[in-house]
Simulated scan of single mutants.
Amino acid sequence: MNDQRKKQTCKGGRKPKIDPCIHRYVFRLNDKDNNKFLSLFEASGMDNKAQFITSLLFSKEIRTVKIDKGTVDFYMRLTSFYAQFRAVGVNYNQVVKLLYTHFTEKKAATFLYHLEKNTAELAVLCRGIIELTEEFNSRSLKK
């Protein structure tokens, strides 16, 4: 009697589906059609071929995601460049502090003058990079 209670209360396993898929259909493809099917399946980004086929049959929306390697590469390089640019800003502040602590006022001002000239060149370079990025966005990403 104890065993029957345990079986009734401790029912293990997966819960049964409300509407299980029990109907099965089989079809065959030649090599050409199979390659086309596989390319469509890969472009859809779905994980399950059965879901892909049913979405095609019943005209459900299929999303295709195309990843442009050039765009991804550009984004990664731009991100790393931005990190380097921030590091230059941090180093700039450290250099200015060190100049005033280790050199006389006149010598520090001379070094700061050279540093400001290089900073102006860096700002021009940064503007050019921003323009290139905006041009790339308008040409490549807005398609």
Rank of each mutant, 00 (worst) to 15 (best):
L56A: 14
L56G: 13
L56E: 08
L57D: 02
L57E: 03
F58C: 09
F58E: 06
F58I: 10
F58M: 09
F58S: 09
S59W: 00
S59M: 02
S59I: 02
S59Q: 04
S59L: 03
K60I: 05
K60L: 06
K60T: 13
E61Y: 04
E61R: 09
I62L: 15
I62S: 11
R63S: 11
R63I: 10
R63P: 00
R63Y: 07
T64N: 07
T64G: 06
V65L: 12
K66G: 00
K66I: 01
K66S: 04
K66Q: 05
D68T: 02
K69H: 11
K69I: 10
K69A: 13
G70L: 01
G70F: 01
G70C: 04
T71W: 04
T71I: 11
V72T: 01
V72R: 03
V72A: 05
D73M: 14
D73L: 15
D73E: 15
F74I: 05
F74S: 05
Y75K: 06
Y75R: 06
Y75F: 10
Y75W: 07
M76F: 11
R77H: 09
R77T: 03
R77E: 02
L78W: 14
L78M: 14
T79G: 08
T79D: 06
T79L: 09
T79W: 08
S80P: 00
S80C: 00
S80K: 05
S80F: 01
S80E: 04
F81W: 06
F81C: 04
F81A: 08
Y82P: 01
Y82K: 05
A83H: 14
Q84E: 11
Q84Y: 04
F85A: 13
F85C: 13
F85P: 01
R86D: 11
R86A: 12
R86H: 08
A87R: 09
A87F: 06
V88R: 02
V88P: 00
G89W: 00
G89I: 06
V90D: 01
V90H: 10
V90T: 14
N91T: 15
N91S: 15
Y92A: 05
Y92Q: 08
N93T: 12
N93Q: 06
